[in-house]
Amino acid sequence: MAVGPSEIEKIAHLARIRIAPDQIDEVASRLSDILGMVDQMQAVDTSSVAPMANPHDATQRLRPDAVTEPNQRDTFLAIAPQSEDGLFLVPKVIE
C-alpha cells in the first residue's frame, strides 16, 4: 500500500507530529515501504481465525475499591514544564 503526501499529513495531524514540508515525501516513501512489507499478511486467509489481543487469552483481574494513593502533588508538579497554583499550565484551551 503506497501512501501519498496528503495521507501523511492526515496521519501526522492525528499523531500530532509536525513534519517539515521538505521531509514529507521521504516519510511517505519510507512508510510506503513498510506498509508494502506488511501487506504480505493479506495473502493469508484468516476469516476463520479469531483476533488475539493477548498472548495468553487471559481475562482481567479486578481490584478492590479502596483508596491507596496519597496526595503527591508537589512531587509530580516539580517535574512539570509549567505549573501554577497546583495546576498544569498549557496554552489557552478553546472550546
Binding site: 479502596a66 494513593e69 496526595n71 503527591q72 502533588r73 495546576l87 498544569f88
Partner: peptide, 17 residues
C-alpha cells in the same frame, strides 16, 4: 487507580501517577 474520587479537593491532589 487507587486515587480518591472525592469531590471538591484541591487541584491535582487526587491525581496519582
Amino acid at each position: 487507580s487507587g486515587a480518591s474520587t472525592a469531590f471538591g479537593a484541591e487541584p491535582n491532589t487526587q491525581a496519582c501517577a
